Simulated assay, not measured.
Amino acid sequence: MLKEWAYAGTFFLWSGAVVSHLIVGDSPDLWGVPLMFGVCAIASWALRPADRRLPHTQLRRHRPTDAGFVGARWRESCPHAVETSLRAWAVSLGLLVALYVFSVLTLPVIEPVMYERAVELGWINP
């Protein structure tokens, strides 16, 4: 249940940022990034594996037929759910490492560009 609220909070955070930028009349290059993160949060919530969903939020094909058939008994009856979970963790960690390496390699190139953009927007004084 806590994860569901975390997804909701993430959605409210990023959608609020987009609305705030729109209200003050910012250009799309400023509100596009929060919009992208909001879309990623929605996609993450919608595409999460069946074993990470609450029973009443699962699709019918993934939902156990017996109402009392939840928790450990459901996991025992679905061994592929544990395999999917391990695969999901491996893919997530691999993607995280790849993004970290990408950010470390591109940081020296991006830093001057971001500095110029911050001066242009008036966020910092040269």
Results as ranks from 00 to 15, higher is better:
H80D: 03
D29V: 12
G16E: 06
P112W: 15
L35R: 09
L13S: 08
G94W: 03
A41K: 01
V19R: 10
D26H: 12
L30I: 14
P112M: 11
L99N: 07
S27Q: 10
D51N: 06
V91D: 01
G16V: 13
A118F: 15
P55H: 07
L54W: 09
V70Q: 00
A46D: 02
Y100L: 13
M36D: 11
L107A: 15
F69H: 08
P64T: 02
S15R: 07
V101L: 15
A81D: 05
V101R: 10
P79N: 04
P34W: 03
P49V: 10
L96F: 09
R87Y: 06
L93H: 11
P112R: 14
V82H: 05
L54H: 08
P49F: 07
V18R: 05
M114C: 14
A98N: 01
F69Q: 01
L47F: 10
W74M: 04
W74P: 00
A46P: 00
E76C: 09
A72G: 00
V104M: 14
R63C: 15
L22R: 06
A98W: 09
R53V: 07
L107P: 00
L121R: 12
E111L: 13
P108D: 12
H62F: 10
W14K: 00
V39K: 06
P49Q: 04
L47W: 11
T10C: 08
L96N: 11
T84F: 02
T57H: 07
L96E: 08
A43L: 09
P34E: 01
W14T: 01
E120F: 12
G68W: 04
R53Q: 12
D29E: 11
E116Y: 14
T10K: 02
V104G: 02
I23H: 11
T65P: 00
E120D: 15
Y100M: 05
G94C: 09
H56F: 15
L35I: 10
G16Q: 06
S85K: 06
P112G: 10
A43D: 08
P108E: 09
A90K: 10
C78W: 00
G68T: 12
L35N: 05
W74K: 00
S92D: 13
A72S: 01
L93W: 14
A67I: 08
V82E: 07
W89V: 12
S27V: 08
I110E: 15
F11L: 04
F102Y: 15
T65H: 04
V97F: 11
A46K: 07
E111K: 13
V97E: 02
L13F: 12
L121I: 15
I42N: 01
V97A: 14
I42T: 02
A41G: 07
I23F: 14
L47I: 04
T57K: 01
S103A: 15
V119S: 04
D29Q: 11
H62Y: 12
R60W: 04
V97Y: 10
L47K: 03
L35Y: 13
V82N: 04
